[in-house]
């Protein structure tokens, strides 16, 4: 969708762009601690695919403390060269969770989210695949629905301020068609 708007300073072209937001919802109440998510994540990322598995390489880990009824699946987020300066703990439903329980960072303070042999950081890539998977693998294997997947399309309005030359070109395109303009520019550049 294109529209030209004059706001007193110049022409603006308002473009509504669709962006796909991939969301894994984690319902800790439903987690049964089976670690199927760890199994399949590591198998999916093996090379060749599914040829091996090893939860130590998984990009999702279940923080697991049955005697305190704590089951928190955490997805590997980012790599950080330095650990946090301070720490925080959460008390949920009267249960105090350890520091770092909910954090997905591959961080020097712990062994989590690092390849066991090389210590290289691990990061969830939402199971990028070609052709794309219908849902991330951990979600597919969590049939008790502690993990569910949502794709949201968000319309983001992108404002692109057009400069003078663009405005000029655009009018030429409108008059002659894009291909003709390109051909002309190519011919001109060869001549010079």
């Amino acid at each position: 969708m294109l529209a030209k708007i004059w706001n007193g300073e110049g022409f603006y072209k308002m473009e509504k762009k669709k962006k796909k937001v991939k969301v894994i919802k984690i319902d800790v109440e439903k987690c049964n601690g089976c670690r199927a998510c760890e199994v399949i994540c590591s198998a999916f990322h093996a090379n060749p695919k599914y040829s091996s598995n090893n939860p130590g390489r998984s990009r999702i880990r279940v923080h697991f403390d049955p005697l305190r009824n704590i089951y928190v699946p955490v997805l590997a987020s980012h790599y950080t060269p330095a650990e946090c300066a301070g720490r925080n703990t959460y008390i949920l439903d009267q249960v105090e969770h350890d520091e770092c329980s909910f954090c997905g960072a591959s961080c020097p303070s712990r062994e989590l989210f690092k390849e066991p042999d090389s210590s290289l950081p691990l990061k969830c890539d939402m199971c990028e695949d070609d052709p794309p998977q219908e849902k991330p693998l951990c979600v597919q294997w969590c049939i008790d629905d502690a993990l569910t997947y949502e794709e949201r399309e968000e319309e983001v309005e992108e404002e692109v301020k057009l400069d003078e030359m663009e405005i000029g070109l655009e009018s030429l395109v409108e008059r002659y068609g894009l291909q003709k303009v390109i051909d002309t520019v190519v011919r001109m550049s060869k001549k010079s």
Partner: peptide, 26 residues
């Protein structure tokens, strides 16, 4: 308190048990 499973199984055959006189167990 919660239904729990063994490794890589969705069946949730177990439970976390809360009894006023005991620590939690499964």
């Amino acid at each position: 308190e919660r239904l729990i499973s063994c490794y890589n199984c969705p069946m949730r055959c177990g439970g976390i048990i809360r009894h006023p006189e005991l620590d939690r167990y499964m």
